[in-house]
């Protein structure tokens, strides 16, 4: 009896999460803000932290590669910035009235990643046109 109740509760919790309007608002906002923010992080160079792998050192924010300390890695920081801010914005979006959340155009979820690709290629032009 107890096992059956637990299973039923878990199943209904799962199905309500998958159809909830708050979850819908969160995932759509997360995707839209995430793609945009990742491109902004690249453009403005906004990592949450910089990792120096040769000396195993983490530096908050952007930090330059220093002589004798090997290269600096920013990708972890860009991804962390994107995930943290997108999660916060996604959560804040769920606090809005349901009709406001539903106004976020669904098309942005798949159009922005497609538009982001040419931008990412352009952002790497230093490698394509390196003499």
């Amino acid at each position: 009896m107890s096992t059956s109740n637990t299973t039923t509760t878990a199943t209904s919790a799962k199905s309500s999460a998958a159809t909830s309007s708050k979850v819908r608002t969160f995932v759509i906002t997360f995707a839209v803000v995430g793609v945009l923010l990742y491109c902004v992080c690249l453009f403005l160079n906004l990592p949450t932290f910089t990792y120096h792998p040769a000396v195993n050192r983490i530096e908050l924010g952007w930090g330059p590669a220093r002589s004798g300390e090997g290269p600096a890695m920013y990708w972890y920081g860009w991804t962390a910035t994107t995930l943290i801010v997108s999660t916060i914005v996604g959560f804040l979006a769920t606090l809005l009235p349901e009709n406001v959340g539903k106004k976020i155009p669904l098309i942005l979820v798949w159009l922005l990643p497609i538009i982001a690709i040419p931008y990412l290629i352009w952002d790497l032009r230093q490698w394509w046109f390196h003499p």
């Binding site: 979850v23 995932v27 997360f30 995707a31 995430g34 990708w75 991804t79």
Partner: peptide, 27 residues
Amino acid sequence: YWKTQGFFDFKEHVASIGLVLLPAYWF
């Protein structure tokens, strides 16, 4: 091998973009 390097950087960007799309994809 500059273009090889460029492709790796592009790979890391694509992986991150894919990551942020997963919750919407699942939903």
